[in-house]
Nucleic acid binder design. Sequence first.
DNA 1: CGCGCCATTGAAACCCATCAAGCGCGGTGG
DNA 2: CCACCGCGCTTGATGGGTTTCAATGGCGCG
Lengths: 255, 255
Amino acid sequence: MAIRNADAERVRNTSFFRDADDETFNTAINGAFLQRFPANTTLLMEGDTVDFLYILLEGSVELGAGWKSKDTTLAILRPVSTFILAAVVLESDALMSAVTLERSEILMVPGDSLRRGMKENAAFGFAVSEELAGCYRGLVRSIKNHKLRDSTERLANYLLTQRARQGGKDEIVLPHEKRVLAALLGMTPENLSRAFSKLSDKGVSVDGARVGFSNVTVLERLARPSPLIDNHYAQDRNTLGKAYTERQQGVLDQG
Amino acid sequence: MAIRNADAERVRNTSFFRDADDETFNTAINGAFLQRFPANTTLLMEGDTVDFLYILLEGSVELGAGWKSKDTTLAILRPVSTFILAAVVLESDALMSAVTLERSEILMVPGDSLRRGMKENAAFGFAVSEELAGCYRGLVRSIKNHKLRDSTERLANYLLTQRARQGGKDEIVLPHEKRVLAALLGMTPENLSRAFSKLSDKGVSVDGARVGFSNVTVLERLARPSPLIDNHYAQDRNTLGKAYTERQQGVLDQG
DNA sequence: CGCGCCATTGAAACCCATCAAGCGCGGTGG
DNA sequence: CCACCGCGCTTGATGGGTTTCAATGGCGCG
């Protein structure tokens, strides 16, 4: 096998391979290999033929798309996430481009192997369906987030989600540069600055990558987080028995 | 079986059941029943527990979502389309509400049966994965459409897509009321009117539901349709051998 | 006939992007 | 050590796209 056992085990324990038996797992990752990429490397461009399923093990990756000289960020991924699974299942072209934001380690699984595993083992195929369904629902959440909330509301909810994921303390550290965060939230860096200053009324203070909260109640009154849009609860679910209920790769990974 | 044979055959021939063997098909739709709904009936609200996969056989259905007294339309479905498949696979709550726009016939398939069929037959499970992947890609296209194009460009591309689907003639008939169309395209009815008048420069004339084209070339120069966003080619693909390459239920069904 | 709903048009307000300039900080090189 | 530069972040001014509010006209239907 072309990948180290440690990597294989890591993938297996943190992705939809979790419940596969050994035989199916080996079928599905047959020919897979681990690759390291520097920052700002284009892994895939829109329209490219997709031969591999990508599994991000280390680093971070931005999924984006362009049209007529405009570009937009669709998602930012952190480990462990799969991407372009849908294109692999359909043997189709990529609808998004993928670029590393940092030095990254990515496991590349041949599409043929994955599809063969799905067709030979119904339980594994079902696990892939669950992953796809989770991705789908992540996108639905993202669309709702963008169409129903303005930029300040999106930022407020993002901050509350981060706070929950970082332990609920009154200070968090932003996991991305502000300009990357702005792209993720669907706005310009300028407007992210302005959104932060609008939130100073609500007890939000910013110092570099550190963000402090002095009045979460009033911030929540503005943000009105909703389990039908935000994913505060994903972590809880993952720590419970159930495997991948919506560990979405999707937009607003907010990782 | 609680549904007529004619209905069963129709579902079977036009959805992801197409390639299933008889035994799997019967397992997957066990307990299914056909139901008729009048217009403007709420089938499902956001947050509801999802017990059934819905398959729209006749009529049309709007998928939408709300937050803080705002509402948005995410998709408009026409026959034959499945919906809330992702929630069924994950045994999860609905992220969107579903409302009939006209009198509709809907086949309701128990989620248990569908999941059992997927787990018992890998080929069927793979077909469901293909359907989910197509839905996912439909959403990706929709997000790109909304984030990369302004409202006039979205309308122009919608019209070109309709024209292609209606046979490429120089007159089409809009399949929805204009206010429904506006919601589908992510704008207000007022702006749809203004967008139409901006397109009169490009040879687009409107008379009620009939839209005429006198200069498709210049309209295409504005619209710049792209196979990575629009779905002009879905029909061609469907008439070719391949089963469901992206017959998306998704947003911008544009049916 | 008249009521209601849809579509259209205009005016004002809002959100956001763009353009432009300035600030702060870290790294480099003199 | 310090001047300089680059880059990310911020702040202000301007403009464009879109929503909202309001008013009007058209059409179907009771």
